[in-house]
Write a protein that binds this DNA or RNA. Structure first.
Length: 624
DNA sequence: GCCGTTTTCGGCCCGACTGTTTTCAGTCG
């Protein structure tokens, strides 16, 4: 069992314990250990082999035993018992903002409600308010929350889906009879939320995929098993779609299954307008032919390009590209990916290669026809990370450790941006602590060669629009990110007033996670994104793509709008742990989906140029 | 459940906001 799967199991245990009413500190212990496992460099299995599980921070005797059981048997009696005790629907309810474990338990015990549907009905029928301490506002929060959850129902954030897809890819490659495996669908396109994980597998007759895969510990049930297709659901509820094809159909199927459906249909229409059929493009597989038929039948009405169907959401590994590099993280096993074929299909249409991230029918085909596809940013273009936390606030690592991890990634610079004083839960820094931190950074600057540490801050935009430090404090930093961490429920006018004040502030260089959304968990606060972008353009403020897979904020479309307005972007991880610097990958994916080129992203720039661009330094000499 | 220049028990991130209440519990960051 992988660290990620162990982490998921521990998280579930923590959630179920919380719903049972266990003491908060015990619950937190499970969640903390889960996070530690997620961020662990070494495989827990290796630690177990040398009897060192308790070296994992937050893992003691008890949790070590549970982890050992999961590692050796793939199961946990403790977890299975919890699952029997707590209805699974209750765990879903934890995601409703404003509803905690306590309220959920009360609703369960008082009304016997165990599913989201029952909860919604009870709220509509105003039965929630019959419970003590609950009223109309709670019912409204429930209705809103259920609505939000329904939207993302059956969907998982890319931060969950991608690691799972990579894991499955490697596992499937080891199955007898498997020639090649590729991740496809929305995972391959880098979508922020995905409905299922799609894999295309080239197999020989007599392969054992359908026999072996259902026995994987993370597989909960087999939804469908056919000669050319296997559909599974994991214990986490993620749907896995596996398309099995003979090796000669692999490339065309991967192309098909990567989607999007809208993009595919535009290609078919384009081909038809030139008197070409999919077969002429080298795409004579049943799926392509069937879709071509559908597109041509719908033909003149121009209905092609609407939405996406689940079957079309399949795809594969990034294969070689013409004219554009793939993000390094998307590259599969080179030995298995030695026959780049997708560029060929585009070539047949007289088009340059269009990478998966652009295949959304958002003008990419027109741009390709005009020869104006962007030269998309890649992970290799990133020279630094301008938003991360250290032990001084709520990070887990020292500044030196964060710097070392950044250096290992080949970065030239980082900014340490801990929280400001008002964010007490995150141990925001007092002015005195800022001084101590500054001294440490100055000391490290002398000790460390090859990487520059900027002394930054993530300063809170307070509920009344003021920043959390006075100007004379703010002017001392090398770089200031301003972010909202409170007053999420304010009206748009109020939120925008705060944001505008921050954007106009002479010492605010970057606006952090501009909309405050948490994928699948929290809606953005009431903001007018276009207005933020216009204000950023006007004031010379940089906007962030927060690369944390929980946020991806700005999102792809907003990033593209920012580019159109000439607003520079910083792709930052907001890492609280050295290993989370790797989240840069998700930020770059989002940026690519937003058509960003290296030039649009300030942390691809040389440090001197970046510093000179900061509001605080414009017109002044560059700070050293 | 973890952890210990606070070490085998008693802390563990803590204060503000919100909704439902008339004095506070629950939730959140």
């Amino acid at each position: 069992m992988t660290n990620l799967e162990l982490a998921w199991a521990l998280t579930e245990m923590g959630d179920l314990l919380e719903l049972k009413g266990e003491e908060p500190f015990k619950v937190r212990a499970y969640h903390r250990a889960a996070r530690a496992l997620e961020n662990l460099e070494e495989e827990a299995a290796a630690l177990y082999a040398r009897d060192a599980l308790e070296e994992i921070p937050g893992v003691g005797k008890n949790l070590a035993k549970k982890i050992a059981e999961l590692l050796t048997t793939g199961r946990s009696a403790f977890l299975e018992n919890l699952r029997r005790e707590v209805p699974p629907g209750l765990r879903e309810m934890l995601a409703i903002p404003g509803l905690g474990s306590r309220s959920i338990r009360q609703i369960y015990q008082g009304l016997g409600i165990t599913t989201l549907e029952e909860l919604e009905t009870a709220a509509q029928e105003k039965r929630i308010r019959t419970l003590p301490g609950m009223g109309s506002k709670t019912e409204l929060a429930i209705l809103r929350g259920v609505e939000m959850l329904k939207e993302v129902r059956e969907q998982v954030p890319v931060g969950v889906a991608r690691p799972l897809a990579l894991l499955l890819r490697d596992q499937i490659l080891a199955i007898p009879g498997v020639e090649r495996v590729a991740i496809a669908g929305s995972v391959r396109r880098g979508c922020e939320m995905v409905g299922d994980v799609d894999l295309v597998v080239a197999v020989q007759p007599g392969n054992q995929v359908a026999d072996v895969m259902p026995r994987y510990p993370q597989v909960k049930e087999v939804l469908a098993s056919e000669p050319d297709r296997l559909s599974l659901r994991t214990t986490l509820g993620v749907k896995i779609e596996i398309i099995l094809v003979p090796p000669e159909d692999f490339a065309a199927t991967l192309f098909y299954a990567t989607g999007s459906k809208a993009h595919r249909r535009r290609l078919i229409s384009l081909a038809a307008s030139r008197g070409l059929g999919v077969a002429d493009l080298g795409l004579a597989t049943p799926r392509w032919l069937a879709e071509e038929k559908a597109v041509l039948a719908a033909g003149q009405e121009g209905t092609a390009g609407e939405g996406e169907d689940a079957a079309g959401e399949t795809g594969g590994l990034q294969i070689g590209a013409v004219g554009q590099e793939a993000p390094p993280a998307m590259v599969g096993r080179p030995a298995r990916e030695d026959q780049p074929a997708e560029p060929f299909f585009y070539q047949r249409l007289g088009l340059p290669y269009i990478v998966p991230e652009l295949r959304e029918d958002r003008g990419e085909i027109e741009a390709a026809l005009r020869g104006e596809l962007p030269r998309l940013i890649t992970l290799a273009d990133i020279r630094g990370d301008l938003h991360m936390h250290s032990r001084y606030s709520d990070g887990v690592a020292t500044i030196a450790a964060m710097a070392a991890a950044a250096q290992a990634r080949g970065y030239q610079y980082i900014a340490i941006t801990d929280h400001s004083r008002s964010l007490v839960v995150a141990r925001g820094l007092s002015v005195e602590q800022l001084k101590a931190q500054r001294e440490e950074i100055v000391r490290l600057k002398e000790e460390l060669a090859g990487i520059t540490i900027l002394a930054g801050i993530e300063v809170d935009i307070l509920a009344d629009g003021r920043l959390d430090y006075e100007d004379d404090v703010l002017k001392e930093f090398d770089l200031v990110i301003a972010s909202i961490h409170s007053g999420f429920r304010q009206e748009e006018e109020q939120v925008m007033t705060r944001l505008e004040a921050a954007l106009r502030h002479p010492y605010v260089d970057i606006l952090g996670h501009p909309t405050g959304r948490m994928l699948g968990r929290r809606r953005p606060y009431a903001v007018d994104v276009t207005r933020i972008i216009k204000l950023a353009a006007e004031t010379g403020t940089i906007l962030e793509i927060n690369a944390s897979p929980d946020r991806l904020d700005l999102n792809d479309t907003a990033a593209r709008l920012a580019k159109e307005y000439g607003v520079p972007i910083a792709i930052n991880t907001d890492a609280h742990d050295p290993n989370r610097l790797a989240d840069m990958e998700y930020g770059v994916l989002t940026a690519r989906r937003g058509w960003l080129e290296p030039e649009n992203v300030v942390n691809t720039w040389e440090l001197e140029r970046l510093l000179a661009r900061l509001k605080r330094n414009r017109g002044n000499c560059i700070k050293q």
